[in-house]
Every structure is written in C-alpha cells, then in structure tokens.
Simulated scan of single mutants.
Amino acid sequence: MSQLPFDDDAPVYVISIAAQLSGLHPQTLRQYDRLGIVSPGRSSGRGRRYSARDIAALREVQRLTTDGVNLAGVKRILELELQVGALQARVAELSAELEAVAARVESSARQAAADAARQAAAEAARAARRDLVPFNRDGAAIVVWRPEPR
C-alpha cells in the first residue's frame, strides 16, 4: 500500500478536531476566523476545514496571547511572518538565478580566454612565418641565398 505525501496545506481537520489539536475552544477558532487571524479552508457544505499549517498557526496565536500580545498584534505578527517567508522564498529564487548567471558568465569568460589564446597562437604562427620568409610590396617572397664560405 503506497502512502501519499502529507500536504501541510491540505484542509482536512474539522473544527472540533482542530480545537483539540490546538488546545483552543471551537468558538475561539470561529472568532479567529471572523477576525482573519487564521482563516481555514471550506468544505463543499461551507464547513471549516483546518490544515496542519492552520493548527500550527493556532498554536502560535495561543502562545502569543498567553505572552500578552493582543489579537490585533497577533494578526500583524502572523502577517509579517508570512511576508518574511515570501521574501525568503524570493531571495532563494534570486540567489539561484544569480548563481546561474554567474556560471554562464564564468563559462563565457573561459570561452573568451580560450578564443583569445587560440587567436594569439595563430597570430604568433603567422608572425613566425613572416619572419622566416620576408615579402616585398607585391606580396612575392624574396629569398636571399648566400653560399656558406668554405
């Protein structure tokens, strides 16, 4: 029997189970939904369905309110945490893109260096041939032969 991977965003828990898992009263969960603090998914019959991520958020709300943060502050904290998560994801995307561009630039630089080396070698070979056989203005080679003294 194969098991499907569990999705943290899948709305699977009804309000009574979500209340038990979070340690909060179902009426408190309804209030948080009305205030937009934790907004669960809805079933086809419009019943609330909480995901594992929603349960974690409810626990965080409970921790913050226990620490003395009011509900407006809790809502703002949760919004900022979502924004930070989105920004971190964007930074990761941009970092990957930057690495890809850097790899392409490095590859292009290596290719340019190799091309320059080949061009310099070809120029050196042409220069060496010119030094061996001088040419006149017409492009004809002038060969000077001198016999060696005996």
Rank of each mutant, 00 (worst) to 15 (best):
M1H: 02
S2H: 11
Q3Y: 00
Q3G: 05
L4G: 02
P5H: 02
P5N: 04
P5E: 12
D7M: 00
D7Y: 00
D8Q: 04
D8A: 10
D9A: 08
A10T: 00
P11Q: 12
V12T: 08
Y13D: 00
Y13I: 06
V14L: 11
V14E: 13
S16M: 11
S16K: 12
I17M: 11
I17N: 03
A19Q: 07
L21C: 06
G23Y: 12
L24A: 14
L24D: 08
P26W: 15
P26M: 01
L29N: 09
R30H: 11
Q31G: 13
Y32R: 12
D33I: 14
R34C: 09
R34V: 03
L35A: 14
G36Y: 14
I37H: 13
P40T: 11
P40K: 06
R42I: 05
S44N: 12
R46W: 03
R46Q: 14
R46M: 08
R46T: 10
R48F: 02
R49E: 04
R49Y: 05
S51W: 03
A52D: 15
A52K: 14
A52R: 15
R53E: 14
R53C: 05
I55H: 00
I55C: 10
A56T: 15
A56G: 10
L58P: 01
V61W: 10
Q62C: 01
Q62G: 03
R63N: 01
R63V: 02
D67F: 13
G68P: 04
V69A: 10
N70M: 04
A72S: 07
A72N: 09
V74L: 13
I77W: 08
I77R: 13
L80I: 02
L80W: 06
A86T: 15
L87G: 07
Q88C: 12
R90N: 13
V91Q: 15
E93I: 00
S95N: 15
S95L: 12
S95W: 08
A96E: 15
E97M: 12
E99W: 07
A100T: 10
A100D: 07
V101D: 09
A103I: 10
R104M: 10
R104F: 06
E106Q: 12
S107M: 12
S108G: 03
A109V: 10
R110W: 05
Q111N: 07
A112P: 08
A113N: 10
A113C: 04
A114Y: 05
A114I: 04
R118N: 11
Q119H: 05
A120Q: 13
A120Y: 03
A121S: 05
A124C: 05
A125L: 08
A125P: 02
A125V: 03
R126L: 11
A127M: 09
A128P: 00
A128I: 01
R129F: 01
R129P: 01
R129M: 07
R130C: 03
D131Q: 08
V133F: 00
V133N: 00
P134D: 01
F135C: 04
F135P: 02
F135S: 04
N136W: 01
D138M: 12
D138R: 10
G139W: 14
A140I: 11
A141Q: 08
I142T: 09
R146D: 01
P147M: 01
P147N: 05
E148S: 00
E148W: 00
P149V: 04
